Amino acid sequence: MLAVAAAVLFGLALLFELVGISVQVITSTLLVTAGLFCLALYFAGVGSRQVTYRRRAHR
């Protein structure tokens, strides 16, 4: 999920850069930084859900 969010942010940054849009605080540099942050979290395993089921032997 974080990788998809990063891709969207990178796409928006590219669009902002190509068109030359800068909306007050939201610039292409901010979007690239946010995308890199999402990728860093994704590679660190923050957004991944790893469920491990253990079966206990009942006697």
Score class of each variant (00 low, 15 high):
residue 1 M to Q: 02
residue 1 M to A: 11
residue 2 L to C: 05
residue 3 A to P: 05
residue 4 V to Q: 14
residue 5 A to H: 09
residue 6 A to S: 12
residue 7 A to P: 00
residue 7 A to M: 10
residue 7 A to D: 15
residue 8 V to D: 08
residue 9 L to H: 13
residue 11 G to K: 07
residue 11 G to C: 10
residue 12 L to Y: 11
residue 13 A to M: 06
residue 14 L to W: 06
residue 14 L to P: 01
residue 15 L to K: 06
residue 15 L to M: 09
residue 15 L to F: 11
residue 16 F to W: 08
residue 16 F to Y: 15
residue 17 E to A: 13
residue 18 L to G: 10
residue 18 L to W: 05
residue 19 V to L: 12
residue 20 G to W: 05
residue 20 G to L: 06
residue 20 G to C: 05
residue 22 S to I: 07
residue 23 V to I: 14
residue 24 Q to S: 13
residue 24 Q to N: 12
residue 24 Q to C: 09
residue 24 Q to F: 14
residue 25 V to C: 11
residue 25 V to A: 13
residue 25 V to M: 11
residue 25 V to G: 14
residue 26 I to Y: 10
residue 27 T to N: 13
residue 27 T to G: 13
residue 28 S to F: 12
residue 28 S to P: 14
residue 28 S to T: 08
residue 31 L to T: 02
residue 32 V to M: 14
residue 32 V to F: 15
residue 32 V to R: 15
residue 33 T to H: 10
residue 35 G to R: 00
residue 37 F to K: 09
residue 38 C to G: 00
residue 38 C to I: 00
residue 39 L to E: 03
residue 40 A to M: 14
residue 41 L to S: 09
residue 41 L to R: 08
residue 41 L to V: 11
residue 41 L to G: 14
residue 41 L to E: 09
residue 41 L to F: 15
residue 42 Y to V: 00
residue 43 F to I: 04
residue 43 F to G: 03
residue 43 F to Y: 12
residue 44 A to W: 01
residue 44 A to R: 01
residue 45 G to M: 09
residue 45 G to H: 08
residue 47 G to D: 11
residue 47 G to M: 05
residue 47 G to P: 03
residue 47 G to N: 10
residue 47 G to T: 06
residue 47 G to C: 07
residue 47 G to I: 04
residue 48 S to A: 02
residue 50 Q to P: 02
residue 51 V to G: 01
residue 54 R to Y: 03
residue 54 R to F: 02
residue 54 R to P: 01
residue 55 R to Y: 04
residue 57 A to Y: 00
residue 57 A to F: 00
